[in-house]
Design a protein around this nucleic acid. Structure first.
Lengths: 385, 385
DNA sequence: TGCCCGATTTGAAACGATTCATTCCCTTCG
DNA sequence: CGAAGGGAATGAATCGTTTCAAATCGGGCA
């Protein structure tokens, strides 16, 4: 393991040499550093220097208005001449609040979530809250560990896109007194705040689109049904197909282990080997769709001519793929903003009734879907390997 | 502002109604919740219940081996019958260590960084450290604010990919006694640990590739030269072109404000309007290249026939674009692993000399580059809008 | 029986902030 | 001239752990 992480071509691992001896002292071995820097400045030293009491310094920090301007100035000067840095731990211990919010997400490498995070962070930063990012990679175990850790850290609130469809762990958080808002997941039935998009509707849009294009055998590449989004998207697909059943349309589901590119690629074998080979696939999210596209390319199946593909999320890269991917657009940034605002309401104890904010999904048609039978004049394709 | 965030189609914002009155109490307004849950269990209550002293409980938590098995059992039982959750703030205050590491990155939406994070997180989690993620969006201001905040939080160490090429702020961290390791940036000359890839070499590879394909007028779409990576990549490109100057090869640089898709797209106008229109572009990173591709598509310029494009980073989506993007591969995951291991060495105070680990970049040729003059039989292209 | 020793357990003293009941000064007013 | 009132500043108590010197316990040994 230690070996194979260097397979990409490690060139050199050389000790750092200093040009100037003067600099050497500053960056000697860390042990030395540590001891030299150990003595951090406390509020007490600031107080001494400024000739005031502890309480006054604290007031300058937290209630500037109650201290006389001249005193305040003196304290502020002392603060930066001592390079005082407030100790959050002590602050938190006494004050009870951490001004930290956590976001526990399924996969931080998924552009869908990074966009949400951007929105949430924007809101939180304005209120001087810090956002802690946690990626569960869809593992209930990891999620549990994060929750535990976040409780220990006494975060003021948590935004969570839960791994399991039963909200046991999220509800437990609330029971423990931690304000929690669900992300991309409706919380009405659990008495939680949430900001979500109607996934059933979205999946219906996707499936309807394929049906309207004339596809008869439609595949759904779906993630594990512990994840709510997957359940809802299956439901949406089913509803749509049920409605078109008399036209002979059928739906086959292929369930994979996670919503990732790799898993999508792996699903292709199943698709192509199916008894009734589908002519269209809808995927539970864009990453899966990316994988499916890659797999189809490798198998030299032309998209959309031989197989239409539609994704879900409309992440930024969807419009740049080969071919560009039809997808279901979700208002990601807005989702993050809405969730953060809800959470902030709870955290600050504003008069507040739990609410479920819901957004509408939207179909975006691109080159990966096309009416059955319509062919392009030339199917040049850029296949790697 | 409050209005326009709903442009994506907000459907409903309805108060949550409970099915069961029994549940209602649990999820009443947060104010009530708060007060009911306010009294968190402390180590003292555990001690009382288990009939031992504070110190013993603490020992069970931190030094299990010194406490007698039967006592330990009693305490552990008390711990989970009271649902005790350790208070990190108090722990940190007394113990001095936070077991938290921060990563301060240029852009968390860039898959290049998420991959690095994955590597670092893996290492850190194994040692029971928590990773705090901070995205500066290339703003020195934001970076400064993060550093300040992280100091206040007394994080044990910081992984940083700095915004500014002078390492002033990073060096200041070290001076303040916070172990710091540079990411994707060589620290030798500053006496810092680092894990990086040779950017000059990488850019040379990219430029050489274009030169060998026969391009005469080459453009470099580059980010702000406050960022070290941009400086190095320019340098690499220059070296390569200088070597080929007698063959009439020239280089034009187009500097944009940030390493993002949008900025790349915007750069296209400049490229196409240039006095001597380039036949090839190399981009300072893949996101820029993605933008350039999108812009070229919009302008109906064929890639690679009319314009060759090469990116940098080889993020996962590069192989799925339309057309697939030639790029410079960096060992991202390994970078994260190496940086985290270096940092851990410093943090734990292991005997340690500052080192600069360097990896080698690698050229990956795909469909966005092709020898000058070679044409595909058919240039179907999926252009959106 | 008395003494010593190692293994356990104890509890008071930090850690570095915030709180808040008091004290200290001045003005102002009767 | 004394009392009242209010703005500023004070500092002891507190938050929930960890730490560590000291107390306790229970045999083993002379």
């Amino acid at each position: 393991m230690t070996n194979d992480r260097f397979r990409m071509g490690l060139r050199a691992e050389a000790p750092v040499h200093q040009a100037e001896p003067a600099e050497r002292s500053r960056s000697s071995a860390s042990g030395a550093d540590r001891s030299s820097a150990k003595r951090r400045v406390t509020i007490r030293e600031v107080a001494n220097l400024a000739q005031v009491s502890l309480g006054t310094v604290s007031n300058v920090l937290n209630n500037p208005s109650v201290v006389a301007p001249t005193t305040r100035k003196r304290v502020l000067d002392a603060i930066d001449s001592t390079r005082f840095v407030r100790n959050t731990a002590a602050h938190q211990l006494r004050a009870g609040k951490s001004r930290t919010i956590a976001a526990v997400l399924l996969d931080i490498a998924n552009p869908f979530f990074t966009e949400i995070v951007r929105g949430a962070e924007h809101v939180l930063r304005e209120q001087d809250y810090v956002l802690m990012l946690c990626s569960t990679d869809e593992s209930a175990n990891r999620e549990q560990r994060y929750f535990r850790m976040l409780e220990e850290h006494r975060v003021d609130g948590i935004l969570v896109c839960p791994v399991d469809s039963d909200l046991e762990s999220a509800v437990a958080l609330v029971a423990h007194g931690i304000p929690t808002v669900l992300l991309d997941r409706d919380g009405s039935s659990f008495g939680l705040c949430s900001a979500a998009v109607d996934d059933i509707r979205g999946a219906e849009l996707a499936a309807n689109h394929l049906v309207e294009l004339g596809h008869q055998v439609i595949a759904l590449v779906n993630g594990p049904s512990t994840i709510r989004q997957c359940i809802d998207r299956r439901e949406g697909a089913r509803r749509s197909v049920r409605r078109a059943r008399r036209r002979g349309v059928s739906l086959q589901e292929f369930v994979v282990g996670a919503l990732t590119i790799d898993q999508g690629e792996r699903a292709v074998a199943g698709l192509l080997g199916a008894e009734r080979r589908p002519s269209a696939v809808m995927c539970a999210n864009d990453l899966l769709a990316f994988g499916v596209l890659r797999g189809l390319a490798a198998a030299e199946v032309a998209v959309p001519e031989e197989m239409a593909v539609v994704g879900y999320d409309d992440v930024v890269f969807a419009s740049m793929l080969s071919p560009t991917l039809s997808s279901i657009r979700q208002p990601k940034y807005e989702l993050g903003v809405a969730a953060a605002e809800l959470l902030l309401e709870e955290v600050t104890g504003a008069p507040h009734e739990h609410r479920a904010i819901r957004f509408e999904p939207e179909l975006v048609v691109r080159a990966s879907t096309r009416p059955v039978g319509e062919h392009t004049p030339c199917n040049e394709r850029h296949v790697e390997l």
